[in-house]
Nucleic acid binder design. Structure first.
Lengths: 155, 155
DNA sequence: TTTGTTGCAAAACGTTTGCAGCCTC
DNA sequence: GAGGCTGCAAACGTTTTGCAACAAA
């Protein structure tokens, strides 16, 4: 996992990707990319689709199609949290972060940790070239710890 | 994340869990638990259901229900790999391991790394009590690297 | 006896697909 | 002009749910 120096813009990268893969540069695809890069944090396909309706109208099928392309182009990161639909977030511009997930209420928080990052980056595989990673630490958040104690008392 | 000394058996733990949560100790639940602890590696609900048919017959709905309970009881780990149905594996008896995922063919391999493990275990949160974690390192496996090169050449 | 659990089938959900028309290239 | 892409709706596969019968407590 190597660090890239000063990246070109997502639009440039997506354009390059589309040309390289002989895909067409449609207005829908760029409208979706721009929308995504205006969103901070997680979103799912449905949410993105709904937010798109106000500006450049696209079908849900095209949203899914484009999310696939962007994922393949490494311009977005995809998460599959337990029951929920797939969550996405932009891959550029936000620092590589990890997620803590509360197993009771499902709340997801981001955090960074230098030691963890370095340990993972240092990992080398014999038959595998790594590009990125996802780390989820599961546990119970403060709120749910309190709730649990209250339940215990009431029994 | 603390290390537990000598654990009681999965059956004992599940029994405890069921009593603690006022759930019934049905034969189906224990049959499923036993089946799971006889499986090495990953499996999904459908596969488990099919394997059950030979011995103790249970419905798919009960399989899902019991998987939920076992997950909640921390006796199994749940993974949500991209397109695939949810994958499970027993949580006890197998060392805590990480997964490398090929983004081209989807092949998943397990690996362990002491430095990564220690870095993650050392992490402390202010408002969150961690119990376990999942680390997925994404990249391209040797086979798919070769395929990619062949495609490049042919263009 | 009470009520949680089961099996079954139907429904729900997110996602994918087939197709006719459109618009990049 | 050719063929990839779009929107739409229908289909898909996994998971959940409603309900009547059953069985653990």
């Amino acid at each position: 996992m190597k660090e890239e120096p000063v990246q070109p813009s997502p639009i440039e990268l997506f354009t390059e990707y589309l040309i390289r893969h002989k895909h067409r540069k449609t207005p829908e695809r760029f409208a979706i990319l721009e929308k995504i890069y205006g969103i901070d944090g997680h979103f799912n396909a449905e949410e993105l689709y709904e937010q798109m309706q106000h500006e450049y109208r696209v079908s849900l099928a095209t949203v899914y199609n484009t999310l696939d392309l962007l994922h393949d182009a490494a311009l977005i990161v995809k998460h599959q949290f337990d029951g929920q639909p797939a969550q996405y977030e932009k891959a550029l511009g936000s620092s590589m972060h990890n997620h803590s997930v509360c197993t009771v209420c499902g709340r997801i928080k981001e955090f960074t940790d230098k030691k963890i990052l370095m340990a993972i980056k240092a990992k080398e595989f014999a038959n595998f070239e790594s590009t990125h990673y996802s780390l989820y630490i599961y546990g119970v958040c403060k709120k749910c710890q309190k709730k649990k104690k209250q339940i215990k008392k009431s029994i």
